[in-house]
């Protein structure tokens, strides 16, 4: 596997350093060739920068990608926004030589050149495609068998698909496959692909943001899922923090929001507190207790399976 730089993005490092922690633990647990490189800025966020200055949006993303060209490494990001923005600009510059030349005329003056020769991926499709389901299964020592987990993909993990090219943009499968590889049921639900709505909090429309959070959380409460799994700091903010704010006002949902890396880390046998699960605003206690209990029950069935696999039943005939 080719070396890759991790692109943390602003939100994880500013607001949720524990998500960086679980990501590093999982990458190290799999012995993956990742590194931190100096010089990145904001990806930059499309909904903020592109609206105000399209040229600067392209240029800033191109500069981040040019740093990869210089270091000769691929990129993986645990943030859907960063992965999507960088891939979108990469695809736009590959299809527009005039714009690429313009960008490079400026980047050359700061000692960089955009080539866009390296892969830019989000962490979830990266695990699915590069690490692979069999390798993931091999690392699982405390599976989630018996647990019902609802996946929230996050729009920018899969869209726009012409740039990301990593899953079906209207019927994605890869995150589901990974959750199932960890033993859990991926609960199918009506609002599964609905946008989290966090963007509305960034334009001073908090009540509308809460309305969107409610749509999903209400359905998941009715379905009695054990947790929601996601891999985007903005969606995490929406469902953990805004759920907490609603609970403070007396609206109870009780849906723990677990990051992909935390889920994988738990299944690999890492301690919840080492992974940073105690930093969540919505407590994961009930989820963890059920998982511990089911793993206790599981060791009994594992013994039964061991005997079956050894041909115990057949030998008695």
């Amino acid at each position: 596997m080719k070396d890759f730089a991790i692109f943390w993005g602003c939100t994880i490092q500013t607001r949720f350093p524990f998500l960086e922690k679980s990501t590093r633990m999982v990458l190290e647990g799999f012995n993956l060739p990742y590194r931190d490189i100096d010089g990145f800025t904001c990806c930059p966020e499309k909904s903020l920068v592109n609206n105000i200055d399209h040229g600067l949006w392209i240029l800033t993303a191109a500069r981040n990608i040019a740093l990869l060209d210089k270091a000769g490494v691929d990129l993986v990001s645990p943030c859907t926004g960063c992965a999507s923005n960088l891939a979108t600009v990469n695809s736009e510059l590959h299809s527009n030589h005039k714009e690429k030349n313009k960008v490079n005329s400026i980047l050359n003056e700061v000692g960089l050149e955009f080539k866009g020769n390296n892969k830019l991926r989000h962490l979830v499709p990266f695990f699915h495609d590069e690490v692979g389901i069999p390798a993931v299964k091999n690392k699982i020592i405390k599976p989630f068998n018996g647990m019902r987990i609802a996946i929230h993909y996050g729009c920018h993990m899969i869209r726009p698909s012409h740039a990301l090219k990593n899953d079906d943009p209207l019927d994605p499968k890869k995150f589901d496959n990974l959750i199932r590889a960890m033993g859990a049921e991926s609960v199918q639900y009506m609002t599964k692909l609905l946008c989290c709505g966090q963007g509305l909090d960034r334009i001073d429309q908090h009540e509308n943001a809460l309305h969107f959070a409610r749509l999903k959380l209400k359905e998941l409460r009715a379905l009695k899922v054990d947790a929601m799994a996601l891999c985007c700091p903005s969606c995490y903010l929406q469902f953990d923090n805004n759920q907490f704010l609603m609970e403070k006002e007396g609206e109870k949902f009780g849906i723990p929001i677990i990051y992909f890396t935390e889920l994988l880390g738990l299944a690999m046998g890492y301690k919840p507190e080492d992974l940073g699960l105690d930093s969540h605003r919505i407590e994961a206690t009930a989820f963890l207790e059920k998982w511990q209990r089911l793993n206790g029950d599981l060791s009994k069935t594992t013994e039964l399976n061991r005997q079956l696999e050894a041909g115990f039943g057949i030998a008695q005939l």
Partner: peptide
Amino acid sequence: TGKLGEPVAPARKKLNLPEAAKSGA
């Protein structure tokens, strides 16, 4: 700043995270 926020050193220390990579500001 070229960014929408900066890494928080005390929180990183508590979590035993390495020093954050330098920003390209």
